[in-house]
Design a protein around this nucleic acid. Structure first.
Length: 427
DNA sequence: GCCGTTTTCGGCCCGACTGTTTTCAGTCG
């Protein structure tokens, strides 16, 4: 029997949180389990091993009670409280409460009062219009539930877009909006601004001399397929590529508040607000309310928002509540590696094998990017693809690379480059 | 259930929206 991994422990804590939520526990207790699950997921060492030594409480969000439950999970393979609750609530209930529009309270009432214990049973009951018998449920609820079930079955909900595709669409959209006469400032927010690996949708915020004109113009852009939820403050757009875009127009003196709010992450914002409350400040997308004066500070920039909390500016890429808030308070935020820090590329293929550009073209591109060196690493015949390169041809290519005349860039033959332990190059 | 340069008890992020209600609970981002 192996010790449960951190991922397994975290899943067990999340499940217990779900079960307690169905059981009607106060939300803070449920949140405590989810926080603990996150702490376990983020831990770099075995949390079960820590628990056995009584040290799991060293992790933020894990106290004596969860420490004990972790030991039980390690010793008995399960948490007794979870066993008890699983007997009370069928697994289908957890699936039901995950449907958009349903939550723990409503899922629980459907189970208690109508005996509905699975998504399938729920769908059947909605079809037969039996849900409206319940107080608080009406025709709209039945409609919404059926739509949610269909969406879940189609599995197109929860589908995410890889960053490079989302970023390309987002930057094109921002460029197009900036070209509108009514636009003053247009920026990407959300997970794409944090450079998350994948994103669910795009958030764009803007200031404008004529908000209505900009919203109208956005809906008629060539790349936009449809616009919905159009209001005085924004619109929901969908690109032809299928990506959803939430556009928000904001007053210039609140641009920083909204940009900070919509950039997230949710975890970062929750921790930031929690920290602010301890200082008597309340952060929202509209401003920062100071308990002491009753005044709400509107911030044109994010620097002002973080500054009010005594923090230096936090780069979007760091906003995941992984210690960046503490570092911003202590002034120990790291300098992020940026494109300008890249000194070269040690893996590229030319038209000599399966690349699409010549050595000279790539060297010129590398020089434009500010690189110091570029290693050409074309396939040899032993790789089994690309053109068949004999040892003689390889030698000729190395000579060609060495004799290529491109100013300001050092060209290396990949087969002859070694990276030394200290990171320097030997060739 | 966790946590504390406001507390060992009493708090725990903020606001909008929705459908169903006669003032709001539940859900969402």
């Amino acid at each position: 029997m192996h010790d449960p991994t951190n991922a397994e422990v975290a899943a067990a804590l999340d499940e217990l949180g779900d079960l307690y939520e169905l059981d009607g526990a106060i939300i803070h207790r449920v949140v405590a389990y989810r926080n603990a699950a996150k702490a376990v997921r983020d831990a770099g060492v075995s949390v079960v091993a820590m628990a056995r030594e009584g040290r799991a409480t060293e992790l933020p969000g894990i106290g004596p009670t969860i420490q004990d439950k972790l030991v039980a999970l390690a010793d008995e393979g399960t948490i007794p409280a979870a066993v008890k609750l699983r007997a009370k609530f069928p697994p289908g209930l957890i699936e039901m409460m995950r449907l958009p529009g349903l939550g723990p309270k409503r899922a629980r009432r459907l189970f208690d009062e109508l005996g509905i214990d699975s998504v399938d049973a729920l769908g059947a009951a909605a079809e037969e219009q039996r849900l409206r018998l319940l107080k608080g449920f009406g025709p709209k609820a039945e409609e919404g539930i059926l739509a949610a079930i269909q969406a879940a079955r189609r599995e197109d909900h929860g589908q995410r877009t890889v960053l490079d595709r989302a970023l390309a669409v987002g930057e094109a959209l921002v460029d197009a909006l900036r070209a509108e006469p009514s636009a003053v400032r247009v920026e990407l927010a959300g997970s794409v601004r944090r450079m998350s690996d994948t994103v669910k949708d795009l958030d764009v915020i803007a200031t404008a001399t004529d908000p209505q004109a900009l919203i109208q113009a956005a809906g008629s852009l060539e790349m936009i397929g449809s616009a919905s939820a159009v209001s005085h403050s924004g619109a929901r757009l969908r690109t032809h590529t299928g990506l959803q875009v939430d556009l928000r127009i904001v007053a210039p003196d609140q641009f920083g508040n909204l940009l900070q709010h919509l950039t997230g992450s949710k975890e970062h914002n929750m921790a930031l607000r929690d920290l602010a409350v301890r200082k008597g400040l309340h952060i929202s997308e509209y401003g920062v309310l100071d308990d002491a004066t009753g005044q709400t500070h509107r911030c044109a920039t994010e620097e002002e928002v973080y500054g009010l909390l005594g923090m230096s500016y936090i780069e979007p890429e760091l906003r995941e509540n992984r210690g960046e808030l503490e570092a911003a308070l202590a002034g120990t935020l790291p300098d992020l590696v940026g494109l300008t820090d890249l000194k070269g590329d040690l893996h590229c293929h030319s038209t000599a094998s399966d690349g699409t550009a010549s050595i000279e073209q790539m060297a010129a591109a590398a020089r434009t990017a500010g690189y110091e060196y570029l290693a050409i690493t074309d396939h040899s015949a032993t790789m089994g693809f690309g053109s068949d390169v004999s040892p003689e041809e390889l030698r000729r290519q190395i000579d060609a690379i060495r004799s290529s005349e491109v100013d300001g860039i050092r060209l290396l033959a990949g087969s002859e480059v070694n990276i030394l332990p200290d990171g320097s190059l030997d060739y």
